[in-house]
Design a protein around this nucleic acid. Sequence first.
DNA 1: TTCAGCACATGAAAATCCTTATCGTCGAAG
DNA 2: CTTCGACGATAAGGATTTTCATGTGCTGAA
Lengths: 230, 230
Amino acid sequence: MKILIVEDEPKTGDYLKQGLTEAGFVTDLARDGWDGLELAKAGHYDLMILDVMLPGINGWQVLEGVRRAGIDMPVLFLTARDQVEDRVKGLELGADDYLVKPFAFAELLARVRSLVRRGHAGLEPAVLKAADLELDLLRRRAMRAGRKIELTAKEFALLELFLRRRGEVLPRSLIASQVWDMNFDSDTNVIDVAVRRLRVKIDEGFESKLIHTVRGMGYVLETFPEEPAP
Amino acid sequence: MKILIVEDEPKTGDYLKQGLTEAGFVTDLARDGWDGLELAKAGHYDLMILDVMLPGINGWQVLEGVRRAGIDMPVLFLTARDQVEDRVKGLELGADDYLVKPFAFAELLARVRSLVRRGHAGLEPAVLKAADLELDLLRRRAMRAGRKIELTAKEFALLELFLRRRGEVLPRSLIASQVWDMNFDSDTNVIDVAVRRLRVKIDEGFESKLIHTVRGMGYVLETFPEEPAP
DNA sequence: TTCAGCACATGAAAATCCTTATCGTCGAAG
DNA sequence: CTTCGACGATAAGGATTTTCATGTGCTGAA
């Protein structure tokens, strides 16, 4: 599997190249937009990782050039934290996924694998929904019934997990491994506390509750109450 | 590469098996000490991952049985947080490495790879030193000039990095990727602040400073001052 | 030499996260 | 029906980590 990285900052570029190489990919690295475009046209890649901020021509322009040349490969692009609208724009231009700097390498790897596997057929949904709750993954914002909800990083990750696996009962060990990247140590109740904080934000003050406890098992996010009417 | 996992808690066991399988290893899973011992004797494994707390016979006993049977394979064992002395004991009994629960999977994978590669020839050093500073990785304790120093998780990780790469100038991007598992985003100074906190703890009040700033490059831990005498 | 600009240092406030302790509730057993 | 025990909810406290604002000193250019 061959990946083209287009990144001007040397440290980030080397970091990506090394990490992906260790993960078993073959990589080429372009240091600016022009080189990137040229390489993209010349070689056959399974994926392109594209920084938005580049000297010469920027990331979108590279993307546009690539698409104009009729090259059909998935594109993952990298944006800085404040370039939210850029991300939206990039997706409209035909990118397949994005990642906000700074990012954990594990996260990048997961997305790269996903894209390489799926091709750029199915873009990940940008907004997850359940009833009147919406989680915008691009803008990192949550809303319920039209009201904006502020979430911390952990809360966001937790809610994202719940929404991605809506209706499934998630045992604490699963939540721990996904949200905390930890193998579970049962003598703590971090998860209970985190779920509570999330509940306060997304359920408190609303008629229908979304997060439900399944005693002895874990937690579920469900649109309908467990027991409709006795 | 074949790995034997001995772990009674089902969730942890499955988690390990799945994760390692995805990482390309072949795994067998034993649910208690007796099964573990039997499998270890029967099959040819490149590594055994051994939980200390097991029903029937405990981890050390399994280890002892394995060694008695003349089986020579590296052993990585898993301990709970409070079983510090157990870890020390386990290493004395001939384990090759340990991991404290809860642990990040990435950490486990790194150690597994290291052990599979090296065999159990070279146990990682348990104590890192520089001048009169010591960092005990087993007991997670730091001392300087005989005085105990309390460190937080981040401080510990940072100091460990400095000690492992003593004398090397570490750019911020490297520190970010190692200690924060993040690709670097230059508009923050978390690293500066973290380095400062560490400095206060290990250098303040001591004649010779260990952590030095290299302007425009990063930080180094060095025993000798950069410029001896002008 | 002086000044401006940049890099790093520092202190303090704010945000987040984890721990601990206590209370409540559900379910099973008597 | 009552009691007990386990599991979960909740509140409060504390520790850690991050952000922000400001200070200081080096370096290179005028």
